[in-house]
Design a protein around this nucleic acid. Sequence first.
DNA 1: TTCCAGGCGAAGA
DNA 2: TCTTCGCATGGA
Length: 294
Amino acid sequence: MKYEWKDNGLIIEQADNFEPAQVFDCGQCFRWVHEEDGYTGIIDDRVVKVNKRGEDILIENVPKEMTDDVLHYFDIDRNYNGIKEELRSDAYLRKAMEYGNGLRILNQEPFECLISYIVSANNRIPQIKRVVDNLSSMYGKQTEHRGKVYYAFPTPNALADAQVCDVQNSRCGFRADYICDAAKRVAWGDLDLDSLRERDYLTAKAELMKVKGIGPKVADCILLYSLQKYEAFPVDVWVNRVMTDIYIHQKMSLKRVGEFARDRFGRSAGFAQLYLFYYYRNNRGITEDDGSID
DNA sequence: TTCCAGGCGAAGA
DNA sequence: TCTTCGCATGGA
C-alpha cells in the first residue's frame, strides 16, 4: 500500500483490507480504545490515533523516524488480497472473509502479547482488557497526549521487580504467579522472545510452553500476533465450535483440531483462524447454507 | 445462587 | 497420551 508522512502522521492511501473497528475489536489486541477522535493505542511508548477517512487510513502522532515501526505494527506491506485468494476455495471462509474484509493481523510487541494472553486464560475479553489496563497503570510508563494521561505496557524489568501480592491488585486472580514468573524469565534473559522469530514454528511453540501459564492455545496466540508465525492456529472455545460445526462434525481433542486446521489451511492457517473466529463469534446462529464447504 | 469465560497445571488412569 | 478437576474474578 502507498503511504505518505505528513504533519506528524502517516496517511495510508487507498487502504483496502484495513477496517479499524475490525482490526481493534476482533480480540487480537486488548489496549486499543475507541475514543471520540478515533482509536487510541500505544506503540513504542507513544500514543497513536487511528482513523479512516474515505479510503485512506490516518495514523496520527507518528514522528518520521517511527514510520517503519508503525508500518510494521499495522502489517502494511503484507498482500492480504493474496492471502484471501489462497483461502477462497473454502466456501465458509469466503463468507468469513467477506464479513471480516478489513481484518489484519497486527505485529504486537511480544512481551505485551505474552502477558496479555497469560491473562486471557479462562477469562472474558472485557476482564482481560481491564487487567491489562490495570497492569499498565500500575507498572507502565506514564505519557500524555492532548492533555490526557496514558500508560505504556510495563517493561519486563518493571514487572519482574513487582511482588506477586501487588500484581494481584490488577485483579488478575490466580494468574499473578504466572505473570511474575514469565516477566522474570524475559527480564533475566532465560526467554529471548525476539530470537523465537528465527526458530521454526514447533520449536518456538515448545519454548514458549516451558513458561508456566502458557499452554498450546496461549503459545499459538503469542506466535501469531507478535512473532509472525502464521501457521499457528490458536484453538479456543469459539474456534473449536466453528471447526467442529463446519469442518469436523465430531468431538476431537483441541490438539487434533489444531492439527486438522494447519493441514487444511497450510501456511495461512493463522489468517484463517482470525476470519473464522471473528465471523463465528459475531454470528453465533449460523444458518444451514453456511455449513456447506467445498 | 449458580454458571461460565479467547486455558492451564497437576494428578491419576 | 488422555481425562478430570480446581482455579480468582466478575458479569449474566
